[in-house]
Design a protein around this nucleic acid. Structure first.
Length: 577
DNA sequence: GCCGTTTTCGGCCCGACTGTTTTCAGTCG
């Protein structure tokens, strides 16, 4: 049983317990454990095999949850969940997805009106039955009815790159307000998460009301969800929620820290403050003496972290994963930056499905300051993309040789290919062709639905192939569109380690494959990653920054990424030299 | 359900906003 499966089960237990009105801290314990397990870089199953005591060494997992992990690994089932499911119909959990409906109200609807599904809730609202319940009124009934329609859309997350577009546009719009002194986005957007649920905007303004008016006048706003003295929420035509918060100047750092999160990071931070007789809220850091609270700092984030003797954590690390342990050990990693990248080892040209010619890709890469690139067009199996066979590929390589002569020492083009791993196993090009390449990416495009054993065996075979240098987009996922294939990533990593092969972090904002947790796991094992754009046009060479964000979330430094090396250094890392 | 340089019991981050109330519970982030 995989970590994410175990985590999902604990999350289900938490949701059902919450619905039943269980102690909120007990619910939180399950959620915390789920998150810890989901983020853990090694299989929990391995720990569970050593016994519950080993599992309970993980933070937030005590004796009870450790035993449950062992049960899950051994039997694939959790009796507690089966019991809970028999008490609460699974369909009622759908009620919790409606904005404004939490566990208490949903439980009341279920208990008082016998509502078990969204359809039944809709009927009850339309019949005016809901407004009669204690704590409900006409307005709540209306909100629920409106929420049922958007329940599917709500919770939909957008790509980080899409959020960035909106954020830039909104920032431009907001800067038109007179008296805006500070403006910054927080939340998961600032932490660089691969997908974003909503956008949080923080401003210091001479007139908060004027800022809110301007916010509400943003052309794409469809409805105002809430507006108070300092806080306003709106929804865009796409369903995306935007939150605006205004704070006084002396609170800007505290508010930015608070709204950047993550929630779990803040819980730890505030707990640390509390144990030192301090208090943190979005207005600042306070000393607490009985009833008296004295403002200490809050103008900048650094002041807040300084006061707790903590480093100014890069936002990408603020997930309550390992950052506090690193800080305590004085070993916060110096995260990789885009400037560290010297080469890009995955891109396409007009020879297959790219839109830029070989010359254009080289020229654009040089303009971006890169020192080398690999041209990695598709192999022949990818017929849709006009994939290359041996002769066409060799012709391209001949052209590259000629260009390299002209370029001299300034820039180097690697003769590469993105060679398909065939459905039945084996590579899509003959060994003698692959042996002539400088750089061979192996990737799966077909047979993605195959069972775990089969697809893993195919990829392992590719890892072991003497000419293959790296596995491209190792799980094949497309964010919000396609699940990863059933590959046993642990096995692939072990093989990559043994055969000194690289794994790709594909920087395409729709892929970002490997994900942050897998990248951290690879680092822990000592596998080098390559961050590549997979550019299909000159514009897409800018995708590198998305890959860098993901790498930073994984805690990667420049040492963990092979294409921060010069080409001669990288060449030495390849097994053939 | 977890956890311990206040604690093995009694805590567990903190505040804004809404709707339904008439002082507050629920929801959200």
């Amino acid at each position: 049983m995989s970590n994410s499966q175990i985590a999902d089960i604990f999350d289900q237990v938490a949701a059902l317990l919450e619905f039943q009105g269980a102690n909120q801290f007990r619910v939180r314990a399950y959620r915390n454990a789920a998150r810890t397990i989901r983020d853990y870089p090694e299989p929990i199953a391995v720990l569970a095999a050593e016994g519950a005591a080993k599992v309970s060494e993980l933070p937030g997992i005590g004796e009870d949850l450790a035993k449950k992990c062992v049960t899950l690994v051994e039997t694939g089932q959790l009796p507690q969940l089966v019991e809970l499911q028999s008490q609460v119909p699974a369909s009622v959990l759908a009620l919790l997805r409606i904005p404004g409906l939490g566990p208490k109200k949903a439980a009341a609807l279920h208990k008082e009106l016998g509502i078990n599904s969204l359809d039944e809730l809709k009927a009850a609202c339309e019949a005016g039955k809901v407004r009669g319940l204690k704590g409900f009124g006409e307005k709540t009934e209306k909100t629920i009815l409106a929420g049922i329609g958007s329940a599917a859309a709500a919770g939909q997350r957008i790509l980080w790159a899409e959020a960035e577009e909106i954020a830039r546009d909104l920032a431009l719009h907001m800067r038109g307000t007179p008296g805006i002194r500070e403006l910054e986005f927080g939340g998961s957007y600032r932490r660089g998460k691969e997908t974003i649920g909503d956008l949080d905007l923080l401003v210091v303004a001479d007139s908060p009301a004027a800022a809110m008016d301007r916010f509400g006048a943003y052309p794409r706003v469809k409805e105002v969800i809430a507006r108070g003295e300092t806080k306003m929420s709106v929804r865009l035509d796409t369903g995306l929620q935007l939150d605006l918060r205004t704070v006084p100047e002396e609170s800007f750092g505290a508010a930015l820290q608070y709204f950047t999160g993550s929630k779990d990071h803040n819980v730890v931070l505030r707990g640390m403050a509390k144990s030192r007789g301090l208090k943190i809220n979005e207005y600042g850091l306070y000393r607490v003496d009985g009833e008296r609270e004295t403002y200490l700092v809050g103008r900048t984030e650094k002041e807040i972290y300084d006061a707790l003797h903590l480093p100014l954590f890069p936002p990408e690390l603020r997930e309550a994963r390992q950052e506090f342990d690193w800080a305590a050990a004085g070993a916060l990693p110096k995260l990789i930056e885009e400037e560290d990248i010297r080469g890009d080892l995955h891109m396409h040209t007009t020879a297959t499905d790219g839109r830029g010619t070989l010359e254009e890709m080289v020229s654009a890469a040089r303009q971006r300051g890169l020192k080398y690139i690999a041209i990695t067009d598709h192999s022949k199996r990818v017929t849709m993309a006009n994939g290359l066979d041996g002769p066409r590929l060799r012709a391209q390589w001949k052209e590259i040789d000629r260009m390299n002569c002209d370029l001299g020492d300034e820039f180097h083009i690697l003769k590469g290919v993105e060679c398909d791993i065939l459905e039945k196993g084996g590579m899509d090009l003959p060994d003698d062709v692959l042996a002539e390449a400088d750089w061979v990416l192996a990737s799966v495009h077909y047979g993605q639905q195959q069972p775990k054993e089969q697809i893993t065996a195919r990829i392992l075979e590719a890892v072991e192939h003497p000419s293959v240098t790296a596995i491209a987009h190792p799980t094949g996922r497309l964010l919000s569109r396609r699940e990863p294939y059933a590959v046993d990533l642990e096995a692939v990593m072990q093989a990559a380690l043994k055969h000194h092969k690289f794994l790709e972090l594909n920087a395409n904002p729709l892929r970002l494959d490997l994900n942050d947790v897998a990248c951290a796991a690879a680092k822990k094992l000592g596998i080098l990653l390559v961050i590549n754009t997979d550019a299909h046009s000159t514009d897409q060479l800018t995708y590198m920054r998305y890959g860098i964000l993901q790498a930073r979330r994984a805690g990667l430094t420049r040492e963990d990424v092979a294409n921060t090396r010069t080409w001669p250094q990288l060449k030495k890392l390849l097994w053939r030299t």
